[in-house]
Write a protein that binds this DNA or RNA. Structure first.
Ligand SMILES: [Mn+2]
Ligand SMILES: [Mn+2]
Ligand SMILES: [Mn+2]
Ligand SMILES: [Mn+2]
Lengths: 236, 236
DNA sequence: ACGAGTTATAAGGTTAACCTTATAATAAAT
DNA sequence: ATTTATTATAAGGTTAACCTTATAACTCGT
């Protein structure tokens, strides 16, 4: 992941946020960015200008921002650090799934390439974070496991949770408390069109979630529910 | 180690520096503090006032500063975090001895009590950092292994290195390059009184070090050199 | 083609940590 | 007791990141 490109914790958080928002929107409105980072639009605009001057991003006026190649590499670098720390906190320190995200958000800014790469080796070069999201490689590649949003499913459909996205502490905690985590089997029981409530069977337990929460879950379909997870039968 | 007492990375570094300097001097002159932290005396004075207002330290005018009980606990908390991270970096990530200090100096500010205590458990509750210095306990105790400064020894005396102190990256790197590290056997060959150069046998190799460097090494005497380290023969 | 709503900029403030230069107060040594 | 060196304070600056309020520019749906 070479040398540190962005200076300061703030810039790193901007890079990460933009990168994540770009998966939805190729051109990220500064308002979304400000919203995500919990700062004012004016402040976000100032920061965007500073980062534009450093060639970390492009800004199309009245449209939004897009990372440059340099910005993209910086963003993936930070995301790699973040997700490796999450793995460490969960796998080695046995800290809870939901808190690992926020703790990693501190650590990600305090570690250079040497430590991160040593961490990756120590952890056995993991490919995904505890929430199912891919860990970018040192050369700047990030490949998502193909999947579809749980909100596209219909009643009686059966699936396995791949990942939660985007990751925020609040959402992770909430979903975790309902048993929703990668690897768990989910069956759609019913969908209420009026108040957008989904009744799901999550790992055998019946749970009710809002459409907003359901939309953050990416899953992999299981063709026949009676056939006991054919998808998982890949020879190791 | 309870709740975070100092706010900001800077205050944490001040606490740590004062605590370390207090082992030499019960009342630390602000000039020493400024020197150690590499900032101006005026800036250090400003910061000292801010910290005095937070009851982290007392300041005797024209004499120096001393940590309050609150400040002492904060300092030991940070030193604990620092030394546990050093152990992790060296033991688990196999990073070099000399660099671990600086890397830990970043990480120490990015970790709360939950992570640190989980780390301590993960590492098997180590009692000393890789440089031989004691790791404070969560309840705020720090006990040094009894030893004497290498500079108090006379020619032909034989000893085992206990620790390097104070820890700075430059000194650690330099000493490491001469084979000087905890556990190594050192024999004083000769001392040149004019230019204060010490000729030592460090782990079998003959090396020359300045008095300034020699004074940073704390050792444990080996009574009879021919008796092949009686001190090490403690039954495990 | 216009007006409502979004987006950008201008202007002025705040805070924490730093800086330098200059002056005042005090301690220590002669 | 006076000089010298150390220590403290005063005054004024800088930088990065934030803030609010107000105004200007633009987009888009009708
Ligand atoms: Mn972060
Ligand atoms: Mn994650
Ligand atoms: Mn530090
Ligand atoms: Mn150490």
């Amino acid at each position: 992941m070479s040398e540190r490109v962005a200076t300061g914790e703030s810039a790193e958080m901007y890079l990460k946020a933009i990168c994540e928002l770009m998966t939805t929107d190729p051109l990220v409105p500064i308002s979304s960015l400000a919203d995500r980072l919990g700062i004012s639009v004016v402040s976000a605009t100032e920061m965007v200008h500073r980062m534009r001057d450093q060639d970390l991003l492009e800004h199309k006026r009245y449209k939004g921002v897009r990372l440059t190649e340099e910005g993209r590499r910086g963003a993936l670098d930070i995301i790699r650090r973040h997700r490796l720390w999450e793995r460490f906190l969960v796998d080695k320190l046995k800290l809870p799934w939901e808190v690992s995200h926020d703790l990693a958000c501190q650590l990600e800014h305090a570690t250079g390439a040497e430590v991160v790469e040593a961490m990756a080796t120590f952890l056995g070069e993991p490919t995904h974070c505890p929430h199912g999201n891919p860990i970018p490689t040192p050369d700047g590649t990030m490949t998502f496991r193909p999947g579809l949003s749980l909100e596209t499913l219909k009643p009686d459909e059966n699936c396995i949770v791949l990942r939660i996205r985007p990751e925020t502490n609040a959402a992770l905690s909430y979903l975790a408390s309902h048993g929703m985590m990668p690897g768990v089997q989910v069956i759609v029981k019913s969908i209420n069109a009026f108040d957008h409530l989904w009744t799901l069977e999550i790992g055998g337990q019946e749970e009710i979630l809002s459409k907003a929460m359901v939309s953050r879950v990416v899953v992999q379909l299981v063709d026949d529910p009676t056939e006991d997870q054919e998808v998982e039968k890949e020879h190791v």
